[in-house]
Design a binder for these strands. Sequence first.
DNA 1: CGAACTTCTCAGGACCCTCTGAACCGGGGG
DNA 2: CCCCCGGTTCAGAGGGTCCTGAGAAGTTCG
Lengths: 246, 246
Amino acid sequence: MNTTRSGRPALTRPDGTPLRVLVVDDDPDLAEVLSGALRYEGWQVRSAGDGASALTEARELMPDAVVLDVMLPDTDGFAVLRSLHTVKPDVCVLFLTARDAVEDRIAGITAGGDDYVTKPFSLEEVVARVRGLLRRAGMARQLDEGPRLTVGDLVMDEDSHEVTRAGELIELSPTEFELLRFLMRNPRRVLSKAQILDRVWSYDFGGRAHVVELYISYLRKKVDAGREPMIHTVRGAGYVLKPVTP
Amino acid sequence: MNTTRSGRPALTRPDGTPLRVLVVDDDPDLAEVLSGALRYEGWQVRSAGDGASALTEARELMPDAVVLDVMLPDTDGFAVLRSLHTVKPDVCVLFLTARDAVEDRIAGITAGGDDYVTKPFSLEEVVARVRGLLRRAGMARQLDEGPRLTVGDLVMDEDSHEVTRAGELIELSPTEFELLRFLMRNPRRVLSKAQILDRVWSYDFGGRAHVVELYISYLRKKVDAGREPMIHTVRGAGYVLKPVTP
DNA sequence: CGAACTTCTCAGGACCCTCTGAACCGGGGG
DNA sequence: CCCCCGGTTCAGAGGGTCCTGAGAAGTTCG
């Protein structure tokens, strides 16, 4: 069976081969980071720096999904989208757009089921969105069923953003939600504060690791409140999320 | 079973194969957006930019429905319609027309069971109209029953435009109706303001996402008034419609 | 032509989220 | 015993998101 570098079972194409993703961004550092994060999911990744090479790469790779910066040196996102669809009509696209350019020309982009995130984003968010796109497109053979993430009696529905523990509803802020999602996707594994910071916080975040401790404390209050704790501290190493009865 | 990219069961042809739709518009951006929205419904879509290529595409695709711009560079929509009918006599047509265009000529055409929408339109509207055309033509085997949409005790009849909650009639303005329809077609799923804007508002709308908040507030006053709320805000993410008892 | 309605902009304000700084806590080592 | 260290928690500033009311412009309809 196909497994990710992270040890989790990979989300694969219906025929069992790894999902193929193309990353298009003119900032090579960002493209590299994104590629790394997606490759970590066990997917086959290639990247391009402009619209023209994006097309040639797409023709070769025949990607299931494309992560596409809207601002490219040669063409605009809409034109690339059109050409991509002529190459592979059922391709999913996740657009990356600058916060201040928001809404200026997103019109219609999400209409086809495609999605977008605004810069600066967190890697966890991008990965989650791509997964969501592929899942909804029926492109991914889901090894776990549906949009549900389960660890012990803790359940997260990624579509409705609902989180319950032992059936009780838990209200979370956006950052709390993303942090918990990251923990739940890596259960029984110690995650260092640096790792968490890299994945859950946006790449331009300047703050210290102290926020992670803070948000872990918030989560404990909501998730572990009065119950058998699932979030554990490993001194000098990081944090683990574990079901109460392994 | 054939499912849409949105996860809903697809509206299929009587023999179970996906419905086939041809989009004809000379604005490539608009054609792209329309194709995307229709493809998202699980239908097989092709597009053309003028009357001549529309015919060749039609001969190949044998579409069940055609979305047809009345103003084309080479011929006018009515000529195309006539040729289409020689290719496939029982094809349904949804005309796209400018607001100030001659509506009386259109009126004659729609007598034949065809329909039209005026530019600028919302994607939700176009998709709903095409669905309606096919349903009425008996072209579509309806997997869910009829023109009725139900979420909890909230019921919408798409044909009569009647909406009731717990049997009580709710009066809605056109925009409120379309917004609610979009929510009801995607229950238990967080919809971002951008997503809603792309789908429910016309493609040329220049305003900000703030209107969505406003209309959600209107809907709440009518749908949730004094009752257990069904419309929920997910801060930083969007809105969800959920039945009170899942 | 006027009335009712619909849509959208604007502005005020409430509330929530995030992050900083500092106090606190408990264990281990000097 | 005291101090250091990693971790936890509290309090609060500031910034942002979201809600709502008022009203202007446009549209529909009698």
